[in-house]
Design a protein around this nucleic acid. Structure first.
Length: 508
RNA sequence: GGCGCGUUGGUCAAUCGGCUAAGACGCCUCCCUUUCACGGAGGAAUGACGGGUUCGACUCCCGUACGUGCUACCA
């Protein structure tokens, strides 16, 4: 008896795909999969002035990267095509007209200037924002105030008009939100939203309702910023005679700035040094690129997992979930009501967790581009060994270079300061002498190298601890990295000796 | 200004009337490691505030404060 579950993600192609957007997709996707339903992607490109070329392709690519593939979309099509609202333009007017005929909508001929004037004139200290509603519509030029013949004359003459919804007076509009429960609005405070614009395109308000109906959407999840316009949508479902088919709503909490207040925006990312978009976004109009999580070195699984936990949790202590587990355990009812401040440190922690649980061969392939970018092209098996050794200190993919560059190339800079004040003659002599010993070492393993060093130390009255730091800096360039002898083993005999000699020469 | 939504440590958060208020991130201390990291052991909340209801409230109700969203022929 129950209808097949159908959900949708309906972005407008105006720019990069924001964290919050991806999370909305994710929750939609998880819900659809959990219920054996369909996940559709619908492009809401009704505002031609804000349309950005390439944005749609970018969104598709983001979804692909995240593994959130729609079942129906402008590219793969589907039974309810087209999936771009601009291509559905002709469908909307019919419904707007239907609303006019039933008395729930009307034509309005007010120009932008007239609207502005009205808002200015009626503005008071108490009401800083005046809306076009049951109160003001009687003072404007519309089919409610104008004689019928004049209205048809204006239309016949091609005078631009919009169609507005006629919001009823003194009604309480109630609807149930899957996350927030019952939400109540006073219809007197709801304005007569434009449904059909002068250019013939629908506004979001008409388009969502018509398309959700036509596409048989059963559950509509969207950002909390839509809550205030929900009563308009509700009224539309009712007036169009579709109320029985209205989807169940869930308004998702906002993702907020880590510091200060407000919604997280692209600017905050730039300012605080972390991405806000899923992938790099190039804005052709401004000729600038905004960084994304993908390019910063996040694994898509970690990114998705992190997003899932931002506003939802399973009620257990588990934080790491595979997509399959998320599908199984996610429930919209457990989504938080309050907005969450985005914490980039926690995001990085998720990535580190995924790096640790990824096998070294896969990891080597993921790290390789970042190493090639620096001009090195290590052998595959060698890279896998290096990855195994340094992965626990890597959080983002580029860290494989930062933490392992000395495996692929001789360090360019040497942090002499790290050991120079304790450098002395015996140490100088030890290293000069020891490299000869190393040269004849047949068993080149970390254990053998260490044994060789330990055996050679007493002759110079030195202890193991005396040479550890200098040796490390000689091989690595700084005070970091895995075990020194292990590094020596991996970079090989010739390179080890060469690096020691090089620094010795510098110090002489 | 109006309306909507929210409010548990710095952050994400568990708790759905019994709390000595989980856990994670981050931070700090110590251990391990003669590097760094990992790992291990610890440290830090008078549950925004004020009233109710109740044997008992972080949990329910009301008010206040604060935050946030909307208030376009943008979504």
């Amino acid at each position: 008896m129950d209808k097949r579950v159908r959900v949708r993600f309906a972005p407008s192609p105006t720019g990069g795909l924001h964290l919050g957007g991806v999370r909305t997709v994710l929750y939609n996707y998880l819900f659809a999969r959990a219920h054996g339903g369909d996940f559709v992607l619908r492009i809401e490109d009704t505002d031609q002035t804000r349309f950005v070329k390439g944005a749609e392709e970018y969104i598709l690519e983001c979804l692909k990267w995240c593994g959130l593939i729609p079942d129906e979309s402008p590219v793969v099509g589907g039974p309810y095509a087209p999936y771009r609202q601009s291509e559905r333009k002709s469908m909307y007017k019919e419904y707007a007209l239907q609303l006019i005929n039933s008395g729930h909508a009307y034509y309005a001929f007010d120009t932008t200037d007239e609207l502005e004037q009205m808002r200015k004139d009626l503005k008071t200290d108490e009401h800083s924002s005046v809306q076009y509603d049951h109160n003001t519509r009687t003072k404007m030029r519309n089919s409610l105030t104008l004689p019928a013949d004049e209205v048809s004359e204006l239309i016949a003459k091609g005078i631009p008009y919009v169609i507005r919804i006629k919001v009823p007076e003194n009604q309480t509009i109630i609807f149930n939100d899957m996350i927030r429960g019952a939400i109540t609005f006073d219809s007197n405070l709801v304005d007569d939203k434009v449904l059909l614009k002068a250019d013939g395109m629908p506004t979001y308000h008409l388009a969502v309702v018509v398309d959700d109906y036509l596409m048989k959407i059963t559950h509509a999840f969207r950002g909390e910023e839509w809550l205030p316009s929900a009563p308009v949508h509700l009224l539309l479902w009712e007036y169009l005679g579709w109320i029985g088919d209205m989807p169940q709503w869930a308004h998702l909490p906002l993702i907020l700035k880590p510091d200060g207040n407000g919604k997280l925006s692209k600017r905050d990312g730039d300012r605080l040094g972390f991405p806000v978009f899923a992938m790099n976004w190039y804005d052709p109009a401004k000729d600038e690129t905004t960084g994304g999580f993908r390019e910063m070195g996040f694994l898509p699984q970690a990114f998705v997992n992190m997003l899932a936990m931002l506003g939802w949790n399973s009620g257990t202590e588990q934080e790491i979930f595979s997509m399959e587990e998320l599908i199984q355990k996610f429930s919209i009812e457990r989504v938080h009501k309050g907005g969450a401040k985005f914490d980039f440190e926690k995001a990085k922690w998720f990535n580190n967790q995924y790096i640790q649980q990824t096998d070294n061969i896969t990891l080597a392939a993921l790290a390789l581009p970042y190493i090639k970018e620096k001009g090195c092209n290590p052998d595959g098996d060698f890279l896998v060994k290096v990855v195994a050794l340094i992965k626990d200190r890597c959080t983002l993919l580029p860290d494989f270079w930062a933490q392992g560059h000395f495996f692929f190339a001789t360090p360019e800079t040497i942090d002499e300061g790290a050991f120079k004040d304790k450098w002395n003659e015996p140490k100088q002599q030890f290293f000069s002498s020891w490299i000869n010993e190393l040269n004849s070492l047949s068993d080149w393993t970390d254990v053998a190298i260490e044994e060789s060093a330990v055996a050679h130390l007493p002759a110079f009255s030195l202890k193991k601890g005396d040479i550890m730091l200098p040796l490390r800096v000689m091989l690595v360039g700084g005070k970091y990295g895995p075990g020194v002898y292990h590094i020596a083993e991996l970079i090989g005999k010739a390179e080890t000796i060469a690096r020691i000699q090089k620094v010795l020469a510098m110090l002489a």
